[in-house]
Design a protein around this nucleic acid. Structure first.
Lengths: 340, 340
DNA sequence: TGCGTAAATGCAAGCGCTTACATTAACCCC
DNA sequence: GGGGTTAATGTAAGCGCTTGCATTTACGCA
């Protein structure tokens, strides 16, 4: 039983087992280098004393921590939760611990968190999106901390990314919408400032409009934080226009669900009076009525692949590879086919 | 600009500023003890070199880290996300960093995570629920790490808790259900083994049954992990019984939403054919149709209070106080009043 | 038995920081 | 102007661990 007044150290263990601190350390870090008999004695002492290595000391002496840090914009949303869960599972299976912090979509807080995690010895970092102050990348490079950007895919190879192309995914969905005969299109987007994913989704829609020879400039876009209530409010605003849209494409499912509620509150039925689309394909999208047409993102797979890629960067000190995952359009009840 | 090959240390800064390392350290930790002129010089050197303190070294030399660790059962569920968000906000406002890990509802993983967080110098820990291996409490006590249990309230004072009484909250809801004339009651619970909240909720229902002179032993309970699909499956099972229940009370909203879907899939309408209740009052509960009757838990408030309480324990080295928050029953469409 | 080699273990130098204590500088007052 | 105070800064001893190198031990073979 541990004494409540002092935490045992390597020294204590060494003394108890009658060996040097080096041997104890080796028992812990490369057991094969210690003969079994000695090892047993040491392990017994460790057990008896309830010894746990002091992490700070360990980090300082060695350089590895087997800790991976992840900073996500928010925990208050299932978008990141699912991917992070598999990310964590994979890390755990490989002997790493995941530490998560959230930035509330604020670059400055994200930066603080990055520093905090690095300071705490993270061997590698998972970040969402790729757009951030170059200074922070310099900081990380100076410390040779591998960084993997996820939830995005960036083919230009400036940095390793494991994710999907937000722009082309949204474009694919928009093409469908247009193919269904929709011409009066509006969008409820997340805040694009400082959020490359949100910006890319808007861009994807614009591209599809341009392809379809529709007036991309006339596109009505409302930007609002990703919250259900905001989606409802935005829909109300959009539907009160002189010529309300026939479809409202939302930056994510949370906004879409909000929009759906907004429509219901206005007495509009979906998709008869107005169609709604989302993005992400979180559970929410299939739970509401009608179910929401959205872009399916392979979150779980992304989490797993991201973990593999990041560990690879950490262990092999490799530059890292990018991997693009495919999204697919999920056609469901909230989008009406105007041709029929 | 930082040299990509070496990370500057206190020594480098000291040399650059022409002072001792002690002075640099003081500039960082108690600036008022350094005369302004010197301080400016030091700060300039820090800036120029892009210096950041090495955390491991700092932890080892000092004892504080201004880090709080939290271990939640899962991130993949809004139940903890919301409370954690305010917890984090409050911590941030007070100058602390939050590190989160998740245990996948597995005691053993939770234990690993506790050790990981403690090893990384967490000044205090937020844990969900109070039921766990006494050994882990010994471990924490030996290291004098303050621990606050949340999402539960334990009046017996064996340990500080900031949360609510799961049992009485569920009992209150069950009383309503009974008052509405329901007699054939079934429950879909989360896995109670190793989850004191889930167990308390079942117990609360049983109490209410006993009060109402209903046969608590005959209560049909299905235990299943908190996932939507599981809720749907469990409902199906329950409704296929010879005498199906008139109401299915669920251990949380996730299960309730699943049950709702299950009912729809079976062609049953809620609440005409069967009533459903939830617990937690997450957003999901108000988004589905009909909206789910549930127990409202003041997550945000709980997060904030928990942060205050924990910081208090950390800073004043106090034993900590418990705080009970009130839940309220939210009557909504999914529960039918059989008397009308 | 003695020597060589390899395996097991010990020694001790850091890792980068904080802080008690020592030293120096600055200033005040009689 | 010397002695006493106080403020500012420097010195150096750890904090607990890992690891390169030195030393010891064990063992095989001639």
């Amino acid at each position: 039983m541990a004494d409540a007044s002092t935490v045992p150290t390597l020294d204590d263990v060494a003394r108890a087992a009658g060996v040097s601190t080096a041997t104890v350390s080796r028992c812990l870090n490369s057991p094969e280098r210690v003969v079994e008999q000695t090892r047993n004695r040491v392990m017994a002492a460790i057990e008896a004393l309830g010894y746990t290595p002091n992490f700070g000391a360990r980090v300082m002496a060695a350089k590895r921590t087997f800790t991976i840090g992840a900073i996500i914009p928010t925990m208050d949303n299932a978008i990141f939760a699912r991917g992070l869960q598999t990310f964590q599972e994979e890390l755990h299976a490989r002997g790493y611990t995941l530490l998560v912090a959230s930035s509330a979509y604020q670059p400055q807080i994200e930066e603080e968190q990055i520093r905090a995690l690095v300071a705490r010895g993270a061997d590698g970092l998972l970040l969402i999106g790729h757009d951030r102050d170059p200074a922070i990348y310099d900081y990380l490079r100076a410390r040779s901390i591998p960084v993997l950007a996820s939830w995005v895919y960036r083919p230009d190879g400036t940095q390793p990314t494991v994710g999907f192309d937000n722009r082309s995914a949204m474009r694919a969905l928009a093409r469908q919408v247009i193919a269904f005969g929709h011409r009066r299109i509006a969008m409820i987007s997340g805040i694009t400032d400082g959020n490359d994913r949100a910006a890319a989704r808007v861009a994807g829609l614009r591209e599809a409009l341009a392809e379809g020879a529709l007036d991309a400039d006339a596109l009505r876009v409302i930007e609002t934080p990703y919250e259900i209530d905001n989606g409802a409010a935005a829909l109300r605003t959009l539907m009160q226009a002189e010529t309300p849209p026939s479809v409202i494409m939302c930056g994510n499912d949370v906004l879409a669900v909000g929009a759906l509620r907004g429509a219901r509150e206005m007495g509009l039925s979906v998709p008869e009076d107005v169609s709604i689309t989302g993005f992400d394909d979180i559970e929410l999208a299939r739970i509401v009525t009608p179910q929401i047409t959205t872009v399916h993102v392979p979150h779980r797979d992304m989490g797993r692949r991201a973990a593999e890629a990041l560990i690879d960067m950490v262990e092999k000190r490799s530059a890292g590879v990018s991997l693009e995952l495919e999204c697919s359009v999920q056609m469901r009840g909230s989008l009406r086919d105007l041709r029929t």
